[in-house]
Amino acid sequence: MIIVGELINASRKDISAAIESQDRGVIQEIAQSQIEAGAHYIDVNAGVFVGKEPKYLKWLVETVQSVVDGPCCIDSPDPNAIETALAVHKGTAMINSISLEKDRYDTLLPLVAGTDLKVVALCMSDEGMPETTDDRMRIADKLVNGLLQKNVSIENIYVDPLVQPVSTNKMFGVEFLNAIEQIVTTFKGIHTVCGLSNISFGLPNRPFLNQTFMSMAIAKGLDGAIINPLDKKMMANIIAATALAGKDDFCMQYLQAFRDNRLDV
């Protein structure tokens, strides 16, 4: 399971304040704690700073990688901001994200073409947000084939089928889960990823729903998650679900987590 730590996002007040005051310490501490908790990528987002995003995104990458060995997940729709950040990035970054929205597709495709970059392919198009499994498959098919034609290898593609709140339509969870299953069976070697907290929008006790939904998605083949890795219950839940889904040889990851007291939540 690939974990992308989501905490360094400028839509969070403490992060935008740290970015504005260029407080390296705050950013570094959050980056480090996410890696220690098991994150493989550190998401960096400076989206709220209109006009200054390239500068701040670059600063975030440099700041994070001055204390952390791992790669960043560069979270922006702006090709200029991504390129500026990539110029200072060490290792192989993940780009979050390309979609089938025309402007975004046309500007980001050349940027990832022929590279080893990991790329999140978000199932969203100019026709709107997908509701059914079929909606998602139509978008995923175009995105994946478009990327393959531009020499992005399939194991570098992370399809995000886009989670919608079950509070507004009881079928939104199921349609997402079935899309995960179809994507992993249709495109051999591909990955799937999602930020799934949107599932519980409008409902009480959201962490509980998020954890349960995560287990269900892992059972269907989800192998990437953009989450808060400091959420110990969620992390323990992922370890258990991964073992139960037959993806943990001899349950060794589960046993390791037990010995590290990471299941004790």
């Binding site: 709140p165 509070s167 507004t168 409008g202 009480p204």
Partner: peptide, 10 residues
């Protein structure tokens, strides 16, 4: 006030 939830409001 968080006593009712979105599905109920809808």
């Amino acid at each position: 006030r968080g006593k009712l939830f979105l599905p109920e409001l809808i």
